[in-house]
Write a protein that binds this DNA or RNA. Structure first.
Lengths: 101, 101
DNA sequence: GGTCTATATTGACCACTGTCGATATACTGC
DNA sequence: GCAGTATATCGACAGTGGTCAATATAGACC
């Protein structure tokens, strides 16, 4: 069994995107809110600077976790539509035959 | 909303443990096998050295993803019993009201 | 076009982590 | 106790990634 995974494994990418306190917090907020949140709200609420927030949002975006939609000067972010499904799928492969779904 | 999460957030810890190609592969194998696997099998199958495997197993162990049971010279690892539940719980908090479970 | 705000990008810095060779520790069998 | 195998730990190092100030880009308004 070859265990040396290629770096672009989408599952690893997704997990890496979530494996940061700030980014996980962002995703939690998006989930709890249930609708798009303006990037500027994250800048105000998070204890890190604007460039850092922007960097984090980019990581999440490129991992397919979130999507952004520009509205004038603002960009509203929301969870990607397939995120829940991806989470569920990964869970099934990681938990074996246990009934996760 | 304070977004500066404390480092010991168990969810972040768990995600960090999984967010490595080798470690994710280990967990996938444990899930697919459905029963404990000897550490020595990982050493043989993974394209990294024995100390690295041991280090990875430790990270997974300390994050609560796996449990080891020594049998003589050998240690057999299996997924922690609550892993599936934890995955499911995190999924629920991250996916909002979507029916993940 | 100029000015303003919102957001992304750049470059530097530094802490953290994956990796490995060497070694320590655990266990077995004699 | 010794010799062997299995596994964990140590220490060093290269690479990665989070962070921020400065700056570039995007968009709105006049």
């Amino acid at each position: 069994m070859i265990a040396n995974m290629a770096a672009p494994d989408p599952d690893v990418r997704l997990l890496q995107a979530l494996a940061d306190p700030v980014r996980l917090s962002v995703v939690r907020q998006l989930a709890a809110q249930g609708r798009p949140i303006c990037a500027c709200d994250f800048v105000e609420c998070c204890a890190v600077s604007q460039p850092t927030i922007s960097h984090h949002l980019r990581v999440l975006r490129e991992a397919g976790v979130i999507r952004g939609e520009r509205q004038g000067s603002f960009i509203f972010y929301a969870l990607a539509q397939d995120f829940a499904l991806r989470w569920r799928d990964i869970g099934q492969t990681l938990s074996g035959l246990l009934a996760v779904a």
